[in-house]
Nucleic acid binder design. Sequence first.
DNA 1: GCGACAG
DNA 2: ATCTTGTCGC
Length: 258
Amino acid sequence: MTDSTTGTTGTAGTAGTTGGPRWPVTEAEAVAEQERIRAAADPVGPGPAPGRARRIAGVDVTYDEDSDLLVAAAVVLDAESLEVLEESVHTGRSRFPYIPGLLAFRELPPVLAALEKLGTSPDLVVCDGYGYAHPRRAGLAVHLGVLTGLPCFGVAKSPFVFDHTEPGPRRGDTSPLLDRSSTPAETVGRALRTRPGVRPVFVSAGHGIGLDHACAHTLRLTPRYRLPETTRGADGLSRRVLREIRQGLREPYGAAER
DNA sequence: GCGACAG
DNA sequence: ATCTTGTCGC
């Protein structure tokens, strides 16, 4: 399989072991893929309201600073008690650099691998990043939702390229997240105060669930901390496992990796 | 060309 | 993302 041109044709790599999606290699290919993802996405929902999702998953990836090692984690919580029902991890290596706007191509291959290791599929997935709030409306949560068919939304820690005004001081206060580069300016998400006196998080719809339900779930997932328990769980697990690998307490790659 | 830029 | 201990405050 050789390219006859200078790297704009073909794709390479597969996710998992069963021949999942094929991942782009060049930026141009990645952007073209996002246009297809956007076309297939449902950012409106309304999707599952709180109470209609029992198993809520959080996913996150931790990277080693100077090797290409990474650990992706999925943590499934009981929507009511927020207790951990199941956890899974995938250890591998990064195959796509971090490029703003193209984060999904770096994070989703290992995230999908971790999700596939769960015994039972979740009812809803919370991503650490954006969904609809994206230059091409195809952020992490949109992309993951389209690939898996699961309702999925995003909770980000910083406003990315978007504008917002400070939401009110109380838990639950919101302000619109605006994309002023589009014509006309469009509301793409919401700054949401999850804890009083603490910086807001930035919620956006993904696939199969709308912004209102996404914010409602986010509030239920933040009874004590700024970030959703799903995100905290996945972040903690992935960091823990990467530390174990560094200490030689765990094998760096899974069976099919390398 | 320069700056900004989820994780 | 990651580098990093203590420290201030409820």
